[in-house]
Simulated scan of single mutants.
Amino acid sequence: MSNSLKVIIDFIVLAILYVVVFFNKWRTRGKAKLVVNTLMYIYISLVLYVTLMPIVVSLPFIFNHPYIPMNMIPFDDYFSGRGDTVRQIILNVIMMMPFGLLLPLVKKQSVLSCLFWTFLFSLGIELTQPLVNGFRAADITDLITNTIGGLLGYLLYLVFKPLINKIMSHLE
């Protein structure tokens, strides 16, 4: 089965999950909640696409390859001059900025709470990557840069909060 088909299966499962479990629940809470929660759902689906997919068809095989423990030396690749680490650091920060921006819209958050949830989301991805795909490795640098991205997203939320509130009030 081609990788593209495997990813399509994941997106079909995510679409069914959205329609069956979340759509009606969010719709009853108002148009603004539906829009914000749907944006967060789409964002998380895209993060899963970039970091973990294919998942569904990989589940039966998660123990068919060795689990590589997390690299626990922060910024080791950068200081060792390996690969395109600067690009990876920047992309990890950018990838998690929407999480930090959208999370307080989904549910009111303090900066510490947002950092905590960003850290947990990133940790879940990092620990799952070697299971789902034997070619991916977990890295403490990714965890750090993802969490920084969530913080920057939360700061953007604070900066744009008046505009966001105005847009949200028009949706209600």
Rank of each mutant, 00 (worst) to 15 (best):
T51C: 14
F79D: 10
W26G: 06
L52C: 11
K31F: 08
I94R: 09
L143Y: 03
N165G: 01
A138T: 07
T118G: 13
I73R: 04
L103F: 07
D77C: 00
M70K: 06
R87C: 00
I68C: 09
I140C: 00
L127D: 03
S2E: 11
G134M: 05
R136G: 01
P54N: 05
N24M: 01
I167N: 00
L48D: 11
I148N: 08
L17E: 04
L155W: 13
I125F: 07
T145M: 12
I164W: 02
M72T: 13
T128N: 07
W117S: 02
L59Q: 04
T38L: 04
L59E: 05
Y49F: 15
I125P: 10
D84K: 13
N165D: 15
N64G: 11
I90V: 14
A15P: 02
F116N: 03
D77T: 07
N71V: 01
T128Q: 08
K108T: 08
R27W: 00
N92K: 09
M53N: 11
K166W: 13
G153V: 04
L155N: 00
G30Q: 02
V132R: 05
N165F: 10
E126A: 02
I62R: 06
L17W: 12
S122Y: 10
S2I: 06
I62L: 13
I55A: 01
N133E: 10
I140F: 02
L39Q: 03
G124H: 11
I140M: 06
W26V: 04
D76N: 15
T51S: 12
S80N: 15
Y43K: 07
R87D: 15
N165C: 10
G83Q: 11
N92D: 11
T147H: 14
E126M: 01
M70I: 06
R136S: 06
Y49D: 10
K107F: 03
I8L: 13
F61C: 02
T51Q: 14
V56D: 04
F61S: 13
L112Q: 10
I125R: 07
P66F: 09
